[in-house]
Write a protein that binds this DNA or RNA. Structure first.
Lengths: 141, 141
DNA sequence: TCTTGACCTGGAGTTGACTCCAGGTTTTAT
DNA sequence: ATAAAACCTGGAGTCAACTCCAGGTCAAGA
């Protein structure tokens, strides 16, 4: 009901799992699940053992929601998130990974745009016509 | 190894399931599975009961591959494919569905573009910053 | 003809991504 | 102080989307 953080000082304010869920769009169970599979880091705990999330955690969750919409499997998201707080330049292998992901996503955008144009064609004429749709699956057996 | 259709005349040429798999990027098992769940229509059979696919079937498969890349669940694809050969104007409810899907896909494209810009920011500076990423999940409890 | 590879069906098994308890502890509002 | 709400863990259950047999039939080349 109230998604305001606990503290008034933005610096060290924390959120309960329920607030985090409300702010990210994930469910509480899902957040715990993501922690279990190490997609999200284990957050700090209160004296009683309750999870206390920070703003950066919320942002990570939002990034996950964002990537999920694009159909990316959770495993593939890990490098994105583990590098979240790091300087990219100090991780050359992650740099390459990012570039790779960037290309893949551009390909996905292209796929989607082609789907849109298929729809548009059907909407305007009821025509059957499927374009190549960037078939980057090359088979050779 | 040979993805050429059986007949020389393009009109009524057919493909084996293996050829269809090669041309579409799906596996043979997956094609049979899609038929079982009625995502793909039951194709004609040869005298001996082997599946014989036509060009339109191949195109349907390619459309599925295309939509799959965008993370669309198989159930949601059905209206797309069942209307494949029909005149859209005669199905007003499908028309609305198409428009709806179109909007959703445009939203996905936006999401993806934001992911690309997140990546670009990280590539250029190692900065942590996650944009809103079109949070169309409105929570109110 | 006959062997080999491709195909068939039906069903079991797998993986990813949750979702839902049960039974207990902590926090918060009155 | 105490009841209700929120949280905890561990584990079982679910659903989509495959994938992989087993045990048999069909097709094409030597």
């Amino acid at each position: 009901m109230n998604d305001q953080p606990t503290s008034t000082f933005t610096e060290d304010s924390t959120y309960t799992i329920k607030q985090a869920a409300g702010l990210s769009g994930l469910s509480e169970d899902t957040i715990r699940y993501y922690e279990k599979i190490s997609l999200l880091p284990s957050p700090d705990r209160t004296g009683g053992g309750h999870r206390a999330y920070r703003q950066t955690n919320i942002e990570q969750m939002r990034l996950i929601v964002c990537l999920k919409k694009t159909g990316m499997p959770l495993e593939e998201m890990k490098p994105f998130l583990s590098a979240e707080l790091e300087n990219t330049e100090s991780h050359p292998e992650l740099y390459a990974l990012m570039l790779e992901h960037r290309e893949r996503i551009l390909g996905q955008i292209e796929s989607l745009q082609q789907v849109v144009s298929v729809i548009d064609q059907r909407l305007s004429a009821g025509v059957t016509m499927v374009p190549a749709c960037s078939t980057n699956e090359e088979k050779s057996d």
